[in-house]
């Protein structure tokens, strides 16, 4: 198996604090309205309490990334050495094909600068021996980086409830599902 770096999203630990999403904006200065990483609150069918469990999502750095396939200028490249799908927005011609093709909506539409943008897993940080900005920035240690073949990655699931199942892409992100507390509820306040 080829080496594949992947995000491990532990929703059991995630506190929905948005630090990861803002850490990304802090690092790359995304235009207002553009967020390469964001939180997806779990719907009622997947978690019983509204806005209390989340998936922190950006690019899933798929095994067979559709963005790489559709990009006419080779702006999306899957790195051989670690499977990171790197996007070079300076090559982007704003044809919007990646934006429209990705089932996970990882490429974002920057209407101001007229280009597609997405998470490249902070590959320059990784090359410099650092963690991605979002991973380092997670105060709850809920977002981590794993090598897919490592034992810790096996603790995660690939398609948890509430996450799209697109097997042809084979997304690398792994998840630990959120738990709900035992409830003891006063029936009313007064």
């Amino acid at each position: 198996m080829k080496k594949q770096l992947a995000f491990m999203v532990n929703s059991k630990k995630c506190i929905g604090c948005y630090s990861c999403a803002m850490a990304c904006k802090n690092q790359y200065h995304q235009e207002p309205g553009v967020a390469w990483r964001n939180l997806q609150p779990l719907e009622a069918k997947d978690y019983p309490h509204r806005d209390r469990a989340f998936f922190s999502l950006s690019c899933n750095h798929c095994e067979k990334p559709v963005c790489v396939q559709v990009c006419p200028v080779g702006a999306h490249v899957k790195r051989e050495k670690d499977g990171i799908v790197v996007h070079s927005s300076d090559k982007c011609i704003y044809c919007r094909q990646c934006i429209e093709s990705c089932s996970y909506h990882a490429p974002k539409d920057n209407e101001v600068l007229q280009r597609a943008e997405k998470c490249s897993m902070c590959f320059e940080r990784i090359d410099a021996g650092l963690m991605p900005a979002c991973v380092q920035g997670c105060p709850a240690k809920a977002l981590t980086l794993v090598e897919l073949s490592a034992p810790e990655a096996q603790k995660g699931v690939q398609y948890p409830k509430g996450f799209g199942k697109f097997t042809q892409l084979n997304p690398s992100t792994r998840f630990v599902e959120a738990k709900a507390p035992q409830l003891v509820l006063a029936a009313k306040d007064n």
Partner: peptide, 24 residues
């Protein structure tokens, strides 16, 4: 950009959503 100081075992490299919005 800003980041949390790793020397502090409390901050431990991470900031909150507010802290990361500081440059903006």
């Amino acid at each position: 950009f800003v980041e949390g100081a790793k020397e502090s075992t409390f901050t431990d490299g991470a900031l909150c959503v507010k802290g990361f919005s500081y440059p903006r």
